[in-house]
C-alpha cells in the first residue's frame, strides 16, 4: 500500500533520486526499457564469435565407422602383397640386366658410329643440316684434292655463268 501522507509525497517530489530503482546494464539495448516490468538480464543476441562444433558422440555412428573400416584390411593386404611381388620381379630383372655384357662387336661398332653421327649433327649449324648443298666441314676433311679442285672449278663456273 502506498504511503500517501503529505510529507512522504513531498519527499518523493523533491528527492527523486532516492527512490529510483537501479537497472541492470548489459549488451541488450532493450534491457533499459524492460518488458512489462521484467528486465531481460540474459544476452539474447548471439555472439558472432560463437562457433558451432559438431559433436561425434553417438554410439550408432561410431559403430558404423568401425564396420566400414574392418572390411578394408583384407584389401590392403592384397595390395601390399602385389606391390611386394612387383618389386621382387623388378629386382630380378635388374640383376639379370647387370650381368649382361655387350660383347657383340658389330653391335658395339654400330652404337659407336650412331653416337658419333648424332654428335656431328648436334655440332653442325642447323642451316647446314637441312640444306642439301656442300658443307665447309665436308671440304675441310676431303683427302682427294683432285676431287676438291673439280668441285670448286664446277661451282665457280656455275657462278660465273650467271654473273
Amino acid at each position: 500500500m502506498a504511503n500517501l501522507s503529505i510529507p512522504s509525497i513531498r519527499e518523493r517530489l523533491f528527492n527523486t533520486s532516492r527512490h529510483e530503482q537501479s537497472t541492470q546494464r548489459n549488451s541488450n539495448p532493450f534491457a533499459a526499457s524492460t518488458f512489462k516490468g521484467n528486465v531481460l538480464t540474459a544476452d539474447v543476441f548471439e555472439s558472432s564469435t560463437k562457433q558451432s562444433q559438431p559433436a561425434f558422440t553417438g554410439k550408432l555412428k561410431a559403430s558404423a565407422l568401425v564396420g566400414s573400416i574392418s572390411g578394408i584390411g583384407e584389401k590392403f593386404q592384397n595390395i601390399i602383397n602385389s606391390v611386394v611381388g612387383f618389386g621382387i620381379r623388378i629386382k630380378e630383372g635388374w640383376n639379370r640386366l647387370k650381368n649382361i655384357e655387350i660383347s657383340f662387336d658389330p653391335m658395339k661398332n654400330k652404337m659407336v658410329s650412331a653416337y658419333n653421327s648424332a654428335k656431328e649433327i648436334m655440332t653442325t649449324p642447323i642451316s647446314e643440316v637441312f640444306s642439301s648443298g656442300i658443307s665447309a666441314k665436308q671440304v675441310a676433311k676431303m683427302e682427294d684434292m683432285a676431287e676438291a679442285r673439280t668441285l670448286l672449278q664446277d661451282n665457280v663456273a656455275l657462278w660465273e655463268s650467271v654473273a
Binding site: 648443298g133 656442300i134 658443307s135 665447309a136 666441314k137 665436308q138 671440304v139 675441310a140 676431303m142 676438291a148 668441285l151 670448286l152 661451282n155 665457280v156 657462278w159
Partner: peptide, 9 residues
C-alpha cells in the same frame, strides 16, 4: 656452295 668450298679448302 662456293662459299663453303672456299672456306673448307
Amino acid at each position: 656452295n662456293v662459299t663453303n668450298i672456299i672456306e673448307g679448302l
